[in-house]
């Protein structure tokens, strides 16, 4: 097997592993549109990274986190409904990113690579970022697992029981920002949310506990990445979208099977 295929597979697996548990939170907390908005802002992060010569990954994470903070403070002021606000921020940050990239005429940024991912172009340095970032995310998730579950069940109940709700919520946003930054290489800005939510939604079909759902989501994600990459190699289709199609097929299969929901 060619080196780039191994790198692609390892990178995809790394991202799928962290996307499982975080994607579960995105599904439970109905944050799909929120994740989309953060992902769309990633291109702006790239543009800023080019402009100020910052590491792209760092630039994307900071951009996501700043956007999340702005979002939370605007949400509190209740100027418009949250979904309207998310729509405005998602598309304007994507457009701002596209305009900014176009204005940087001395640097060529391959837009397609960022919008739809370039799994086959993953380098060992990218792998390092994926696994280092992924390890930090997993560690934090493991440490914060119970409070995260508690605020997902009910934020007021959690606060009365002594959970620092605001800090935990911010931590979750930060984690989603990191995952977006590392997943961008694999499926691209426009398809990141699908990698978060489709395996998690499929896993719901099989899971009877939150932990099970997170683990199943990771495993289903790994299978989707492998299948997608295999299809991409043999059918010469784009890798990122092929992974998403594989995840969709899993989802459809699982939901058409007669499985009784136990919890």
């Amino acid at each position: 097997m060619a080196d780039f295929l191994i790198f692609a597979l390892l990178g995809g697996i790394g991202v799928a592993l962290v996307a499982g548990p975080l994607g579960s939170f995105v599904v439970w907390r109905r944050m799909a549109y929120f994740g989309d908005t953060l992902a769309h802002s990633a291109l702006l992060g790239i543009a800023i990274g080019v402009l100020f010569d910052i590491n792209f990954n760092l630039a994307v994470v900071s951009c996501c986190v700043i956007l999340a903070l702005i979002l939370v403070s605007l949400q509190r002021q209740r100027i418009v409904a949250t979904d309207t606000l998310l729509g405005i921020m998602a598309h304007s940050s994507l457009s701002l990113g596209l305009v900014a990239v176009a204005l940087l005429d001395d640097v060529r940024v391959d837009l397609m690579e960022y919008l739809f991912g370039d799994l086959l172009a993953i380098t060992p340095t990218d792998l390092l970022w994926i696994y280092a970032g992924g390890a930090i995310v997993m560690l934090l998730l493991w440490r914060l697992w119970n409070p995260l579950l508690a605020i997902t069940i009910n934020e007021e109940l959690a606060q009365v029981e002594g959970v620092p709700v605001t800090r935990i919520r911010l931590a979750l946003m930060l984690l989603i920002g990191v995952v977006i930054a590392i997943a961008m290489k694999v499926v691209g800005i426009l398809l990141i949310t699908s990698l978060l939510i489709i395996p998690a939604a499929s896993a719901r079909r099989l899971a009877t506990s939150p932990e099970q759902m997170a683990i199943f989501a990771s495993l289903l994600g790994v299978v989707a990445v492998s299948l997608g990459l295999y299809a991409s190699w043999h059918l010469d289709t784009p890798a990122g979208p092929s992974v998403v199609v594989a995840a969709l097929v899993q989802f459809l299969l699982l939901y058409s099977l007669p499985i009784r929901r136990a919890a």
Binding site: V27, W28, R29, R30, N146, L149, A150, T152, I153, N154, E156, L157, V160, E161, A201, R204, A207, T208, S209, P210, Q212, M213, A263
Partner: peptide, 23 residues
């Protein structure tokens, strides 16, 4: 504290046992 109503999203697989354990 016992809130008036607790809406748990059906996408959240949770048994009574696990729910009590998060307390």
């Amino acid at each position: 504290y016992m809130p008036q109503k607790l809406h748990i999203d059906t996408t959240f697989p949770l048994t009574v046992e696990r729910f009590l354990k998060t307390a």
